[in-house]
Amino acid sequence: MRKSVIFGAVAAAGMMAGVASAGTLDDVRAKGFVQCGVSTGVAGFAFTDANGEWDGFDVTMCRAVAAAVFGDPKAIKFTPTTGKTRFTALASGEIDVLFRNTTWTYSRDVDLKFTFLGVNYYDGQGFMVPSGLGVSSATELDGATVCIQTGTTTELNLADFFRANNMSYEPVPIETNAEAQAKYLAGACDVYTTDASGLAATRSTFEKPGDHVLLPEIISKEPLGPLVRHGDDEWGDVVRWTLNALIIAEEKGITAGNVDDMAASAGKDPEINRLMGTEGEYGAMLGLSKDFAVAAIKTGGNYGEIFEKHIGVNTPIGLARGLNALWTEGGILYAPPWR
């Protein structure tokens, strides 16, 4: 009780300090790089390559933000954060933006005082079972032992789902995906539940992926996206419109390969011209250079290119676009107009 009071007071003091400080965009400009919080490792989303460089779906998008501000995707430093340290790292100002498979929820937005800037991956919680179990629907899982990561929204969703369906389950609490993989393969639990993207990635690493099935039920909405501190709208707009630029670029067929041509001179499509900075003064409204979206797109291509490179069907992770396809192609990816 006393502990929570102290923590609360400290957190409140931190919030006020955060609000009182100058805008993050100015701070970022002054120090010359973006400090980006990423995960300590989620397959395809954030990982280190053999040279020790961070790479992945989330990481590339964060680099695009750096490119938008500085014109250089390398003007960035990464802070690996765990599920436990991510929010304090952001609230205390240690990082400028958090790009870490974080689900946009009411309480995180309102109570923890963060601003979510859009969704870069629509996920949902699913179940994986060995096909030998003979289960074809999550509603047949009464009495199952379930491997579940603690401290995440998935834990709460699982409890809700089983209660709503009048079923019981026995949780096997685990800390990391690696542990879950090992436990699940060793048969310590019948079911492994986490975000469907994570399940697909996990299954792809098994020696015999065919022996395991993903059940059709998706029991929750997990919109994952970048977030910044409350009360920092200018900086938030930079991140939000960098993400939107990548999505619009896919919509308009602008790729890493042809972005330079498109930006060279004004073309027929006025929205492309506005995005490329060949028409209007859209960069200046944000306090950025005219062609900031060009630099962002050059980092790793448009949304679709980044997706295919790191998590798409041709990667070992092998995720289909699904909900994350453009709204014109049956998905729900929809960026507001650039005007």
């Binding site: 954030a46 070992p316 992770i317």
Partner: peptide, 15 residues
């Protein structure tokens, strides 16, 4: 370090 290494899709699944 094990986490970011294992998150590399080349090495995911190694333990």
């Amino acid at each position: 370090l094990l986490n970011p290494i294992r998150a590399d899709s080349n090495w995911n699944g190694i333990l």
